[in-house]
Design a protein around this nucleic acid. Structure first.
Ligand code: ZN
Ligand code: ZN
Ligand code: ZN
Ligand code: ZN
Lengths: 144, 144
DNA sequence: AACGGTGTTGTTATATAGTAACATTTAAGA
DNA sequence: TCTTAAATGTTACTATATAACAACACCGTT
């Protein structure tokens, strides 16, 4: 999906959810979108400062939190970063593949695999929540 | 496994691997072991300072890194913390279940589930590395 | 239009997490 | 003993994230 298409989908999704994609949030989303792969909060902050002058960490973290909550971004804990969801609109559980060699990120639909995990966890009485799984490894390009 | 048993297993495992469980590393391991569930680096640092007087972050981070590398601890990225491996000795891939209500942690053997994921990733040309999966949800005690 | 509540953003300060770089000590082999 | 590599100490710093409160904008009601 191209960036314009993504922003349109984002607008739509926020309307559906009854939440507001304000100018600031939209700007932050566009800044994330402008990067390939994983983006860090402080990188976004720096970008935002270039565009708007002064800005402080809470401004960025709030917007990022909102966008994650709205399902437009995913937080990639292991990297302290964020990626754009590549399945906006379809309620999904992501399988996020991060290449340890080149840093590229690829998001798959993980529902089937998570069913297996869910069963295994359920056998221990544990109910796993909806979530995204981060897996590290080597992407096709980096496998020699 | 009780703590003494774990320390014995840790000694054994380090010998097997030809690495040294020095006094400092052992002390850090015992400090982690003294807690239930997830422990943070700076908590360990504080504990260490109580026991030995002065200590600086690198001291703790080095020891923790070593212990993770040796397979005695697992890093729990999503929580910026560490847990004691509950399968020391058997080479394994962990499935780490973290209860979002009470913070308890439970580690399962994840090999079968990871096989499924590995296949799904392989279909995209992605080779996932050996790793531990962190899943959040509700433990048996916290499911109402 | 004025009011009041709610959500959003601004601002300051601080808390928490992790690492770089170099000095010093310790342990293991030649 | 001498040499060297590993481990630890030390200082300083960078990076990540949040608390707390102030100011503002939006929206429905009076
Ligand atoms: Zn997604
Ligand atoms: Zn790659
Ligand atoms: Zn384990
Ligand atoms: Zn629980």
């Amino acid at each position: 999906m191209d960036k314009a298409g993504f922003m349109a989908a984002a607008d739509h999704q926020c309307q559906q959810q009854g939440v507001k994609l304000t100018a600031l949030r939209r700007q932050v989303l566009e800044l994330v979108l402008a990067h390939e792969g994983v983006v860090k909060a402080y990188q976004v902050l720096a970008d935002l400062q270039r565009e708007r002058g002064i800005a402080a960490p809470p401004t960025v973290y709030r917007a990022l939190d909102f966008l994650v909550e709205a399902g437009l971004l995913h937080k990639v804990d292991a990297l302290n970063g964020y990626i754009v969801c590549s399945h906006v609109g379809c309620c999904h559980e992501g399988l996020i593949l991060v290449c340890t060699a080149c840093g590229s990120v690829n998001e798959l639909e993980a529902a089937p695999a998570l069913d297996t995990l869910r069963q295994q966890a359920a056998a221990q009485g544990f109910a796993i929540a909806q979530q995204n799984l981060l897996l590290t490894g080597l992407c096709q390009a980096c496998r020699v």
